[in-house]
């Protein structure tokens, strides 16, 4: 449970930038006094969010490979949920979505964990694109819903490209 030397340098650098940013943000807020401007408030909220992000990644780094993979799995989960909430899905897509969330994400990250590059690099764009529309077609409308598999793919591959 210790950070590699490069990670320490990285976090010290990022932490330094954040400390400077926080100081500037707070100074601006203090100078505005009891007439806080929306812009400064927005800036300070963002700085706070960056602290949280850096904190989470730091925590994940402490737990090594497993921690990082778990963190990214949850980011994928959140991103896919956010994405699909905004898009149109049909009742017949129910099982497709279940498979994407509860089989797709764990399987993808398990493959990354065991470092099976040949499979995890094509799992979504090849097998996902094949299986998910078939599921939608079998369960619901004869028209397969390509939209959901597109989104699944974009979120998913986004998560793996980082590696």
């Amino acid at each position: 449970m210790s950070l590699p030397a490069e990670a320490k340098t990285l976090f010290m650098g990022v932490g330094g930038v954040l400390v400077v940013a926080t100081a500037i943000g707070q100074a601006l807020a203090w100078r505005a006094g009891d007439r806080p401007s929306n812009l400064v408030q927005n800036l300070n909220q963002r700085i706070f969010a960056w602290w949280v992000m850096v904190g989470l990644i730091g925590l994940a780094f402490l737990f090594g490979k497993g921690g990082t993979i778990l963190l990214f799995a949850f980011i994928s989960f959140g991103a896919l949920r956010e994405f699909l909430s905004l898009t149109h899905t049909r009742r017949g897509d129910h099982w497709t979505l279940l498979v994407a969330f509860f089989i797709g994400i764990p399987l993808q990250y398990y493959l990354i964990w065991i470092d099976w590059y040949g499979l995890y690099s094509i799992l979504v764009p090849v097998y996902g694109f094949l299986v998910l529309p078939i599921l939608s077609a079998v369960r619901g409308d004869p028209r397969s819903d390509r939209q959901s598999s597109f989104i699944t793919a974009s979120v998913w591959t986004g998560s793996t490209r980082g590696r």
Binding site: F77, R81, E82, L84, S85, R91, H94, L98, F101, F102
Partner: peptide
């Protein structure tokens, strides 16, 4: 969770 389904899909 549409009517008749058993497992819920995570959506906001």
């Amino acid at each position: 969770m549409p009517k008749g389904e058993f497992l819920p899909v995570p959506l906001l």
